[in-house]
Amino acid sequence: MMSDKKKIGFYWCGACGGCQVSILDIDEMILDVVEQADIVFWPCAMDPKYEDVYEMDEDEIDLMFINGSIRLEENKEMAELLREKAKEIVAYGSCSVNGGLFGLGNLSDKKELLERGYSTKTTDEGSLPQKVTEVEEGDLKLPEMLHHIVPLEEIIDVDYLLPGCPPLPNQLEEALPALLDDDTEVGKHDLISSKSVCDVCPMEREEKKIEGLKPIQEVEFDPEECILDQGVLCMGPATAGMCDAPCTEVAHPCVGCNGPVKDVKDQGSRMASALASVIGVEGEEKMSEEEVQETMESIRDPTGSMYMFSLPSSIMQYRRGDIDE
């Protein structure tokens, strides 16, 4: 008897594993899920081989969640293969939607990353990973690293984007039933909030002018007050707020993990504009241009902080040209 249950799958590309754990984070709701759907492919929990995927029929999987960044040739190949085997693809988690934390590697190039990772002072000199290693039993091959990380969307057609690092249970509780139900229309960008983290943050933002940014440990911190108002970098204004601000609620600055708000492409640019407006000093009319600029120097590593989770999906995507020492 053919069951009319949906078939779903989860696959990870270049990832930390948090997205896989987040699926279990929905607690007993997983029982509702398995009532409606069979999990037919899940390398993290089962033990499928590449061949098993190649042997699948076209469109065999109804709903395929792909998380992690596209870092290696292998990630790209698997994504392309799964596109053929699945009816609908969900880019799951910030790495797959926006490139994620690993996307910061795009500020370096492949050469620099490999050399830094495998032969700097802290590691033994001289052994970059070999693509092919000959052993008695035959040749062992390592997948090639790509020049830069791209969002999944750039490799294959994606049907839904569900960012988050990782997506939280409340996001899944909303998304899963809608995605599994044929009668509910879900648009590609509908799972991204058009509200920012500031919009859902319990702290009241007074939009105070601040004189510059400070590391949180140098501030007499008031957990009841808006973090940005206190002069600590908080990505709230430029970050999509599906998470309901659990970090700022416990007085941890938003790091921007959800990526930009719905229909915004460049999270870092939005944050730069926000920072340029909130930073300001009394009597700046009498200051020289250089002195006004100095008010900005308190921002440490602006590019890295503002694009921490979304560089590969930003306008520039990755660093151009050669990197000189």
């Binding site: 500020l107 870092g268 730069a272 504009s273 920072l275 340029a276 407006s277 930073i279 300001g280 700046e284 009319e285 241009e289 006004v292 600029q293 008010t295 900005m296 921002i299 602006p302 590019t303 890295g304 503002m306 520039m316 990755y318 660093r319 151009r320 040209g321 990197i323």
Partner: peptide, 30 residues
Amino acid sequence: HPGDCHYIDGNYKTIRKTWLLKKMMDDMGI
């Protein structure tokens, strides 16, 4: 000119934004 912006402090924001933007450009290899 600074002080003459018709929205009072718009061009001070521009000074700060441009400073940030140049940092970002430098990091992106432009």
